[in-house]
């Protein structure tokens, strides 16, 4: 495998990991806050949060171009130029991965037995302790599933990333982009190893997740009996 392909692969991994971290913290936080809160405009807010899941990636990319550009509303958050650096690839991946994390985490929190959380409160636990010792561990299988899906989505991000980060070999070129441009140039020698590695890696992740959740279900199969 060429150095360029390896660099693209490593960058993909780094971008996907960081994007997953951002999406998971914000996704879990939003899910928790919205699970048992009721306020006017909640439906609208939820629709907005899920939007990146259904929008074409190019539309997300265009929105991010406007947002992250020099005159965009978020320009003050990031010092200097952020477009066409690998950080903007992280942002694009995080934005498209967020809805997967949010949705899974929300379903997971909703399935937690509310009386176990209440029992914790009557035993003297404040909200923070209830969250970390009861809600989060009980919601963990669903959050884990969201984490893996978000990571897979971030790893495969193409459209939005191309628009905001470009395809600069060694700087912003991720594996999906290296594959696309290699195939376009007829350079199968670069494309095929990348395709095989991404395929094997993705397979291993999904295989492991299924195995893990089945084992976990088996371990606690008796739990819901009462």
């Amino acid at each position: 495998m060429s150095d360029e392909a390896l660099t693209a692969l490593l960058l993909s991994l780094r971008v996907a990991l960081l994007a997953t971290a951002v999406a998971s913290v914000s996704g879990v936080a939003c899910a928790r806050l919205l699970t048992r809160a009721h306020f006017p405009g909640k439906d609208t807010l939820e629709a907005v949060l899920l939007l990146p899941l259904v929008l074409p990636p190019t539309v997300v990319g265009f929105g991010l171009l406007l947002f992250l550009g020099r005159n965009g509303p978020l320009a003050w958050v990031f010092p200097g130029q952020i477009l066409f650096t690998w950080w903007s690839a992280v942002i694009a991946s995080a934005v498209v991965a967020f809805p997967l994390m949010y949705q899974n985490a929300k379903a997971a929190f909703e399935s937690v037995d509310i009386n176990q959380e209440r029992a914790a409160r009557t035993l003297g636990a404040g909200e923070v302790r209830v969250f970390f010792t009861v809600s989060l561990p009980l919601a963990w299988p669903g959050i884990m599933a969201g984490l893996v899906l978000a990571f897979a989505r971030a790893l495969g991000e193409f459209g939005a990333t191309l628009m905001v980060a470009g395809n600069i070999p060694g700087k912003t070129q991720t594996a999906p982009m290296a594959i696309y441009f290699a195939v376009e140039a007829g350079d199968y020698g670069t494309a095929v190893p990348l395709v095989v590695i991404v395929l094997l890696f993705s397979f291993a992740v999904i295989f492991w997740l299924n195995w893990w959740s089945r084992n976990r279900v088996a371990r606690h199969a008796l739990r819901r009996r009462g």
Partner: peptide, 16 residues
């Protein structure tokens, strides 16, 4: 958590 009142729930609500 500040009331100091114990609660035995109908299905016991043990932390599973």
């Amino acid at each position: 958590h500040k009331r100091g009142i114990g609660f035995i729930f109908q299905a016991y609500a043990l932390f599973e």
